[in-house]
Amino acid sequence: MKKSIILAILCMFVANNIGMDPSEESRNELMDLAQFMMTENAPIQEWQTTWKESISPERKDALVKMLSRKYEKSVTKDEKKVKISFKNRHISKGINVLFNVVIPRHGNASAEFIAVISGNGWNSNTEENYTLINQSFMNKYFTNSVRRFACLTTRGNDIINGDYFLTKLTNYFQVEQIQTQFDTVEQSTHKKIIYGYTPLWKQRISIEDAPMNIQIAVEENGSDNPTYMIGTPILINEY
C-alpha cells in the first residue's frame, strides 16, 4: 500500500508484541479478506502481505547467497542499518515480490528477513498463484516464527457504502472490542481509523492486555465513495 497508517499508540507495541496461539488452526488472512470482498462484490484495488522474521548471522549469509543467484540485488545504507534488496517483478503475472535482508550496524539486534508480496486486483488466477507463493515461502525462506501482515484496499460504490459496508465487514469477521479514532488533523485524507479483535486470526497485538488484530482506515478521495484500507494485525508499509 502507498501509505503507512499506524496509530501512534501501536508503535510502542508492534515490534515485540505480535503473538499467536500455536494451538489455533492456521488461516491465511489475505485470502480471508479477499473472499469477503468477492462475496460482497467489492473491487480489490491493491493488496499486500509482508513477512518478517529475525535471523541468525549464518542464516543471513545463506539467504543473501541464495537470493543473489536468482534476483537483481541492490544495497542501501544509512547510519542505523544496511538493507540488501532483491526484486522479482515477474514471479507471476500481476504479482510482485520484494525481499529485504536488513542488517543493523550497531548494537546486538538480530538481522531481519522481510518479504513483501503485492499486486493489483484479484481473481481466481491471482488466488492460485498467491497460494503457491505462500507455500514456497514457508518451504524455502521462513519458519513458524514468522510474523505476517496482510492488507488490501477497496473503494466504495453504490453497493459498498459507508456504515453498511463496515457493519458487514465487522460482522463477517466477528470483530470484538471495536474502537474508532477520528482524524482531526487539518488536510488529512483519513476520515477515521477503526480497530478491534477477531478470533478468526491467530496473530494479535496486545495493548493494555487487550488483543487487537484488525485495523480499517477510511480515507476520503474527493468523491462520495471513500477508500477502505483493511489490515491485520495492523496496517504497515514495507516498500
Rank of each mutant, 00 (worst) to 15 (best):
182 F>Y: 10
165 F>I: 02
147 R>D: 09
230 I>G: 02
120 N>F: 07
135 Q>M: 12
139 N>S: 11
47 W>N: 08
193 I>M: 15
119 G>L: 09
16 N>A: 08
117 I>K: 05
32 D>V: 07
82 V>S: 10
136 S>M: 15
199 P>R: 01
183 D>E: 11
156 G>Y: 11
107 G>I: 09
127 E>Q: 09
110 S>W: 08
44 I>G: 04
51 W>T: 01
143 T>G: 10
10 L>T: 01
80 K>Q: 09
135 Q>A: 11
102 V>T: 05
192 K>C: 07
65 K>V: 02
117 I>P: 06
12 M>Q: 05
126 T>Q: 04
87 K>E: 13
209 D>Y: 10
77 K>I: 13
157 N>P: 07
13 F>W: 06
56 S>Q: 11
8 A>H: 09
39 T>P: 00
49 T>E: 15
179 Q>Y: 08
235 L>W: 00
218 V>I: 14
133 I>Q: 15
20 M>V: 06
223 S>R: 04
179 Q>W: 02
63 L>G: 01
107 G>K: 12
28 N>R: 14
145 S>G: 10
204 R>L: 13
96 N>A: 02
31 M>K: 08
239 Y>P: 12
176 E>V: 07
131 T>H: 06
196 G>L: 00
48 Q>G: 08
88 N>Q: 08
7 L>R: 10
184 T>P: 06
96 N>E: 05
214 I>K: 00
101 V>G: 03
40 E>W: 13
113 F>T: 04
136 S>N: 11
73 K>M: 15
234 I>L: 07
19 G>W: 13
142 F>W: 08
94 G>C: 10
